[in-house]
Every structure is written in C-alpha cells, then in structure tokens.
Design a protein around this nucleic acid. Sequence first.
DNA 1: CATCCACAGGAAAACGCGGTTG
DNA 2: CAACCGCGTTTTCCTGTGGATG
Length: 417
Amino acid sequence: MVRLAEILERTESLIERLHNTKRNNRIILNPDYLDDEKLPEEERTSVLREIFNRNIREKQLTRLAQHLTPILDGCHPPSLMIFGPTGSGKTATLLHFLSIFQKVSAKRGKLLRYAYIDLSSPKTYFSALNELARSMDDSLRRYRKGIPVSLMQDRIVNCLLDFKGFFCLLIDEADNIKPNADEFLTFLGKTLPRKVNCRIVLIMLTNRLDWEKTMDPRILSFLKKSDLIFEPYDAADLLEILKLRVEKALDTDKVDQGALNKIAAYASHETGDARRAVELLVKAVKVAEETSGRLTEIEVDKASMTLEIDKTEELIKTLASQQRLTLISCYKALGSNPKKKLSTGQVYQSYASLCESDGVRPLTQRRLSDMISFLDLYGLINARVISHGRYGKTREISGALPFELINRLLELKEHPS
DNA sequence: CATCCACAGGAAAACGCGGTTG
DNA sequence: CAACCGCGTTTTCCTGTGGATG
C-alpha cells in the first residue's frame, strides 16, 4: 500500500515536471500566425500589408501599378499574364494590390470591381465558369452538372450587365483547366466583352513558363496580353517575411537571429518558396520546444533533417510496388556499407532473388534499368553511367539515403502491414 | 590501333485492361 | 457477347559505346 502511494506520488511529480518544462520551453505564443489558413480575413490582410510595407515585392508592385494605372484615366489596359514559381507570392501580391487599387480608384471616382477564382485543383470549362459565377454572386449555387454551359455564361453576363466600370478578373493557376482551356479563354477574352458594358481586365497567374506555347495562337492574339514575372524570393526577402512571422507568433526572446538567417538561406537555396520557409520555421520551433527551449541554428538543422526524411519517406510510400522492390533490392545489395558501388547486374540478381522469395514475377533487366534511372531521378539512389573499359560499361549505383531511413525501409519489407 | 565487355538505351512488338461498338 | 480500339506498361530485339587491355 505504501508503495502504491509512492508510485502515484512519483507519477504526479513527473507530470508536474513535464508540464513545467513544457511551459518554460514554450516559444509559440500565437500559433495562428504560422498558418495562413487559420488566420481571420482582416488579420491576414494586415499581415500582408506589413509584408508589403517592408519593401518586399516592390519591383513587381511597381510594374503592376504601371500596368493598371491607365484605369484611373479611364483607359483600358491589356490583359496581364503573370509567371512565377509556387510560393513566390503571386496570389498574395495581386489580392493585396487589387484591394488597395480599388480604394484608390474609388477616390478618383472610377468604378472598379474584381473577382478572384482559384483553379488550383484542375477544373473543367464548365466548373471554371461556375466558380467564376459564384465569385461574383454569392447567392449562386455550385452545380455539378445538369445546367447547360450557355446558361452559366448568361449568369455571368447578368452579373455584369448593369456595371459600367472596370472589372478585374484574377485567375489563379490559370493553366489548370483540363480538357478545353481554349474555350474558357475565348469566352472571357472575346465573347464576354461584347456582351457587357464594363471593361474587362484579365489577370492570369501561372507557374508554368511554357504555358503560352501550349495555347492556341489565335487566343494569344486577341488576349493582347503583356507579361510580368515574379522571381522567387531571395534570402533577404525571406528573412523579412520570417521576421514578421516571428514577431507575430513567437516569443522573440527565445529566437536567435542566426537561426532565421539559416532558414532563409536554406529556403532560398532550394526554391525561394515562402511557404516552405515558414514550414521549416514551424518545424524548427517545434523541435526547439521539445528540446532546448531556444530556437538556434542547431534546431534549424535538426528540423531540416527531419523534414527531409519525412518527405522522402512520404515519397517511398507512394512508390509503385515494383519501384519499391527495386529500391529495397538496391539497399539490400548495398548492405550497411555506404561507399559500396553496385552494377546493374548485381542489383538485378538481388532483385531476382527478392522476387522469388516474395513470389512475384520479376521484370526484365531492361525494365529494371529504367526503374533505376527513375529512382535516381527522385534522388533515392545515386546512379551514373561509368565505363570500366574492357570490363564493361554499367551504372554505378550507390546509396543516397540516411541510415535511419534505410533501416526502416528494410523493416517495412520484413513486416508488411 | 582494334578489340571486346556489360551493359545503356532506342524501337518496335506484345501484352493487359477498361471501355466501346456492331 | 465477341470483336475491336486506345493507351500505358512490359518484353523482345536491337544497335551503340567508353575506355582498359592486349
């Protein structure tokens, strides 16, 4: 009985202790600011405003303004096509700009409306129209089918019929209309302007530079568009963005400047994607909360490692079974020696025996060879072609994954769920 | 220099497999 | 229901090749 009480006591103090350290290590004060989706609308725009107050994206804003200011004089600017990789702030910048621009033009007595449609999940011609109609009039329903396309078009026309100002239409991921993107653009660029009284300015966002090459040249010609390019953020921009987040969401006393620099450097080195940078920040903060209670470069390193591992593990999970088999046989043949080099033939032998024990019909060596180059492309192994002269020409295959992951991979194979 | 290894990687035929047509 | 088609995957067959070696 006495012992039981002791145990209870001990557990109690354990809980207390954990709770205390957790509180002391707390860095996140306001988690909402780390996730744009959770932020209420007004907060989101105010965050955006601050970003733009820090002179990020100034160049793009200037060019945007140059392009659209003719509206203030009542002239009709051409459509705009905006290119830029993911996470370079296209959407945020445009939404911010248009909301401000609307106010400015209202002051000058010019009517300006704008609508935003997001095609980030692929849409058909019809559902794109539907989306558009909804963005202009909330009362409209989202249809799945059963409504003729022309009716949808009429609805859109009706929304704009008695509007005489400028109408900006912002189309996000505009290249994402599946079967017949051309019709959609023809409607917007040709049919619609004829039927309504307002002037329409199309603004299309895409991350595919080659998009216009896949488009019908006739459409290109009547769109009369001009281009604007968003370069990915550089390290300095990312740093500003991160700083802002940190000020809003974290306990600044516990954050090292060096850590932020490091995150910015990582992210700009990779893609310059701001979302990625914030993602890394969040991960690093979590690591810090669990361990030292301070965000320093060490935590950032740890976080980027785990992030990397998570990503590749995810990738491995989604591989087709033959691809996974190939991967496993590579690492089986490699053993625990990281510097060992394999030839295609060796991997094939390992693969063939693996197939036998699994009762799977093995693929040809030709096919395996393709699998290997595929895995190399994904960075799961390193494979390059090398000639050993008289002793043949083959791929030299070596590992590219951290130990931890390899072990888990092999275990996964031993005990399949 | 010619040879020749052990594959790379292109081309085309064969195979599935869901969907469509007569 | 068989025959046929379209399309992606796999097999078969093939020619090509960098450089150590003789």
